[in-house]
Design a protein around this nucleic acid. Sequence first.
DNA 1: AGTAATTTGTTCGTATGTATC
DNA 2: AGATACATACGAACAAATTAC
Lengths: 83, 83
Amino acid sequence: MPEIDRTSRLYPYEQIAAWITHRIHNGDLRPGMPIPSETTLQQEFPGTARTTIRRAVRHLRDLGLVETLPRRGTYVLPPQDHQ
Amino acid sequence: MPEIDRTSRLYPYEQIAAWITHRIHNGDLRPGMPIPSETTLQQEFPGTARTTIRRAVRHLRDLGLVETLPRRGTYVLPPQDHQ
DNA sequence: AGTAATTTGTTCGTATGTATC
DNA sequence: AGATACATACGAACAAATTAC
């Protein structure tokens, strides 16, 4: 449900990251596939700034869920068994 | 007159809140418009801390005069007829 | 080959949230 | 009450590489 809950204690970037994570675990976004572009995500979450979208993607990157190829896109990584 | 009266029995935050309230009732600040930012207010009332400004704004919020959109700004609400 | 569209990179300015001293 | 620091958020502008046609 792409809609930011402004009353949540979760930051918008956290909500966006959670949404993408959900789609990955869902199988909607599979390893090797690109996630939606920043512009697209911004449209999916009206009222958000691109800087916030980028913050969310950075978070996913930090979690090791995705990989960003400069100026090409951000792609879903294979599941990592982190012991 | 943005100048804190240190001899007044009114707390600085009350004086600041009163000043903003005055500007709202004045029509200087109208519904839907953002009130001056915390930084601006801090400059308008030299010698005050941001925490004090925030306390004043919180007071206005409690009174139902303004609404704060987290990390976006504080806006004047339409007049409320409180019976 | 060449141009336009797309996508990420970078930076600036302004605003509030939270914490510490 | 004041001072300082850092984080998140929105908006905007521009740069650079890639892709599409």
